[in-house]
Design a binder for these strands. Structure first.
Length: 210
DNA sequence: GACCAGGTCCTTG
DNA sequence: CAAGGACATGGT
């Protein structure tokens, strides 16, 4: 990671801060956020909210319930998020991981972020982004979430690091504060929704920095 | 009808 | 290791 990438990223973050400031992002209980992290894979958040609502109605919105439930019940509750069969398997893998290894989510707080991250990455269906979302938004850890938007916006703006290095770059530039991590990721997604539809995100961002 | 969405896994070259 | 396909529904 080059020095100029750090400077550029600092400028982008500062711009987004004044542009958006405090915005609400990913509310919900620890377990709801974990479930939502799987459901939102390649899926709009509005559809995830509907699915979470259905799971709540069916008493399925907890890891313990997912653990013991028949897969078919979960499938019908989350159908509107797409990929509902694989996502059901992934939710069950996640629930098994937590319950078999930790009994409950609170017990996970005894383990360091880097160990938890390695463990989560071994769970079927949990890749880097889902693991970091769970760490950052469900477990309040400092593990920055890099998604496709972030990579695209940074790339357009001249920060060409790939995902793994981008994560390190953000973590070296941001203050050591979980809230800052949460907000910053929220800004990037917000910005992407506003400008990336027409693939002009980089142009706009460069202009914004002048 | 085409294209994409807050990814991940598996298979190929 | 990069690239491409599968997974699937819903919105524009």
């Amino acid at each position: 990671m080059s020095l100029s990438s750090e400077k550029l990223l600092e400028e982008i973050i500062s711009f987004l801060d004044t542009q958006y400031g405090e915005i609400p992002w990913w509310p919900g209980s620890t377990e709801e956020v974990m479930i939502g992290a799987v459901l939102t894979q390649q899926t709009r958040w509005t559809n995830v909210e509907i699915a979470l609502g259905r799971m709540n109605e069916c008493g399925l919105c907890s890891l313990a319930a997912i653990y013991r439930s028949a897969g078919s019940d979960i499938e019908s509750a989350i159908r509107c998020t797409g990929f509902y069969r694989v996502k059901t398997k992934r939710l069950k893998s996640l629930a098994s991981f937590v319950i078999d290894n930790y009994c409950d989510v609170d017990s996970m707080q005894a383990v360091t972020t880097s160990i938890l991250r390695k463990e989560l990455l071994c769970v079927n269906g949990i890749g880097a982004e889902t693991a970091d979302s769970i760490l950052c938004y469900a477990l309040n850890r400092r593990s920055y979430v890099i998604d496709a938007y972030t990579e695209r916006i940074c790339g357009c703006a001249g920060i060409t690091e790939k995902k793994g290095l981008l994560k390190s770059l953000f973590e070296s530039v941001l203050p050591e504060d979980n809230q800052a991590y949460r907000l910053c990721h929220a800004w990037f997604v917000e910005y992407a929704k506003e400008y990336c539809g027409n693939r002009r995100c980089g142009e706009c961002m460069i202009k914004n920095l002048k």
